[in-house]
Design a protein around this nucleic acid. Structure first.
Lengths: 192, 192
DNA sequence: TTCATTCTTGACATCATCGTCAAGTTTGAC
DNA sequence: GTCAAACTTGACGATGATGTCAAGAATGAA
């Protein structure tokens, strides 16, 4: 390999992820990425081809981080505890940063109509993996009938988390979101 | 009044609503609006000022239509029936059109960071009105304890509907969304 | 019918982004 | 050290969107 790359790819992708997280795939420009990473636009085109290619790498990084966090949050306690911990993590995650960065998956899903097939597929894939993770956690939880309908429950949990992401963008505070999440968890997994 | 307007304002706003519904505030251009309405760009600027002003009018129209539909759907039956009917209406609404147009409120909320204060305020206002509508409907429903925590329940119902809108964008079918909605309604208002 | 007012039209300047490229620079293999 | 390959840089042209404007057309009041 001659004429080696002048920048650290891992670092560039990590920074790109941050840019996309705050601005979204659609609104982040190559210039935004160039400024944030300190790598010229031309170099980014040369190295990755286009913005979507960079996004896919960043999104993959994000997906792994996200699923890892979800897995941890869902690992301990009974069904209600797992759900509460998980939702808490979700809300904390989307209300972090200044300004709060929201949820990248949700933002990307909303732009699905104007995104490439690859992007759409990644979003669906992440949602599916998350759903499975939740279903498994509910099934594995000690307690009575938590495992019954774990699949169906997992889907509405995923759906509800997407709703939280929208409410965050609409302007609801971390506290309001956590309250709503707690109400939801109780209604779904609480001892009725 | 001299030099009368050459187009029907109601009709222009109705068509603009359709354009915004399919493309979103951010992605719809003045040219899109001009083409769809048959009114020249210059005339639209002259009549309304800018794109956001047109959007606000269209959104107001949308909000009234939407709340009227929600009110009807929530008017009859016990709490579970009202919730089911309402969620069904929501899903049908967002999966109508070709291509499906999704949910304008959700789309707009996601773009909140790059929208004006007026737009943000309208979104919040609509969500708040919807929440009150649902809370009132749950309170008014015949049956046992439906009215208990109606406010809290209404908020998670609103949140869940936002989640449905995201899942629709992600690619879930009308049937999948209705299934999820039914699961949610049962879990929230069903006889535990 | 006249005429001031308002609307309409098409063109214009501006701006931001995109994707490409030729020239220059850096790098590692030999 | 030499050199070809790969990367970097800054500039370029194309595109599409925005908002403005002057000139012309249409309208209704008097």
């Amino acid at each position: 390999m001659v004429g080696a790359r002048q920048f650290d790819e891992q670092e560039v992708i990590a920074i790109a992820l941050d840019v996309f997280w705050h601005k979204g795939l659609h609104d982040a420009t190559m210039q935004d990425l160039a400024s944030a990473t300190g790598v010229q636009r031309g170099s980014l085109y040369n190295a990755y081809g286009d913005k979507e290619a960079i996004f896919l790498r960043a999104f993959d990084r994000y997906a792994e981080q996200f699923l890892a966090s979800a897995g941890e949050a869902l690992a301990h306690g009974d069904a209600l505890t797992r759900l509460r911990t998980f939702l808490d993590m979700i809300v904390t995650n989307m209300t972090s940063g200044s300004p709060p960065r929201g949820c990248l998956t949700t933002r990307t899903a909303l732009d699905a109509a104007i995104s490439g097939d690859d992007v759409r597929a990644r979003v669906l894939q992440l949602l599916a993996r998350l759903e499975r993770l939740i279903a498994d956690a509910l099934t594995a939880a000690p307690g009575k009938d938590a495992a019954r309908d774990a699949g169906r429950l997992a889907r509405i949990v995923v759906t509800f988390t997407r709703g939280l992401a929208v409410m965050e963008r609409a302007g609801y505070s971390r506290k309001q979101l956590k309250d709503a999440a707690a109400t939801f968890a109780d209604a779904i997994a609480g001892d009725a």
